[in-house]
Write a protein that binds this DNA or RNA. Structure first.
Lengths: 198, 198
DNA sequence: GTGAACATGTAACAAGTTACATGATTGA
DNA sequence: TCAATCATGTAACTTGTTACATGTTCAC
């Protein structure tokens, strides 16, 4: 499916009307934050373009109590059709990028003390994320099966990750430290800037 | 840390020398594939730039048995320093993008039969991924604690995901079907291309 | 003889991020 | 008074992808 910022906005607007600012908050702090990314710089242009194309509408709301004026967007029938079309497409493969795992891959090259700091910080981050999800699952309405499924998926995965990381902690921090600096590359250690042009 | 294609190449070259083609294969099929992305279009330029900067060297290898000539890259001392520097940086937050989860979030809008197809296809994909990892874990040397840790992490997570998906299958496919088409947006159903300019 | 695997590279393009620009109110 | 929250938007930039261009050999 075409999972870009546009589809994301349509999805959110299919649940309730919202401003660009609110959409971004949902993406950054809400359930979506766990499997999607989007910043102002992509949300506002997407909204503007979809307005031109008739997929969404705007309603201006005077800023209450001196607040700045807000543009409340809502989805149109054409927008819903576009969303349904995107939803019917085969999903692209999941993409998971983890600098932490990359570091673990080369952990033996990292200073043992610093490695411990990184490792523990990562566990804490996962725990914060889990707690956030736990709170969200409380807030989300019980009739929204989709949100519940996704939240439960996230809770399960985060719980597993945290347990794994805690279980392996000692092993990692010891084993990786012992043969530290031991494994060199199969190279004839050059020091300067030698270049073999093609 | 600066986890871009350059750092990735340095990391791989710190384990063994390789051609651009080989690096890409490792990224696409090896352990790295589970938490990193990189295509020819980014690997070759990265290698070329690092060569200029003295972080890597090349050795030309005449194509054996008519094979095309290969440029075998290896890391230099300066390259190792750059890698270590990157490795010592705080890792960025994990990024997980899942179109599948997005679809589950709005599952009630998807045709029930098609939803089942998508769901089962996703499970199968995860199972294929798990089997791949299982094979890799056999191949990777037992002394490489980093690779083992990462592979085990992947196996644990994939196993959990598959179990979760299988357990919830009936629930999802039934519950989501029953109140299908029920939830509309809080909009005054417009049909045309009305536009409220700012 | 056809496609897959090996092998390197470029150029156009897509997508989204970061930083900037602006401005009011509220609470510490 | 200083930071945070609400609020919208643009422009330059980064990063990486897709598709193209080229050529061989091996196995079916």
């Amino acid at each position: 499916m075409t999972m870009n910022v546009r589809t994301l906005c349509l999805g959110i607007l299919s649940m309730r009307e919202a401003t660009g600012y609110e959409i971004r908050k949902m993406v950054e702090e809400g359930v979506f934050s766990h499997f999607i990314d989007a910043s102002y710089g992509s949300i506002y242009p997407a909204l503007a373009r979809m307005l031109k194309e008739g997929l969404v509408q705007v309603r201006m709301e005077a800023g209450e109590q001196g607040r700045p004026a807000r543009k409340v967007y809502s989805i149109t029938a054409r927008g819903q059709a576009a969303l349904d079309e995107a939803l019917a497409t085969d999903p692209a493969r999941d993409k998971f990028k983890s600098e932490f795992l990359f570091q673990m891959m080369f952990a033996r090259r990292i200073d043992p003390d610093h490695l411990a700091v990184i490792y523990d910080a990562y566990i804490e981050e996962q725990e914060r994320e889990l707690q956030l999800l736990e709170e969200e699952v409380q807030r989300c309405p019980p009739e929204d099966a989709g949100a519940r499924f996704v939240a439960d998926y996230g809770r399960t995965m985060l719980g597993t990750a945290i347990a794994f990381l805690k279980q392996r902690r000692e092993e990692v921090l010891c084993a990786f430290t012992e043969n530290n600096q031991e494994a060199g590359p199969p190279t004839t250690e050059p020091t300067g800037k030698e270049e073999q042009p093609s």
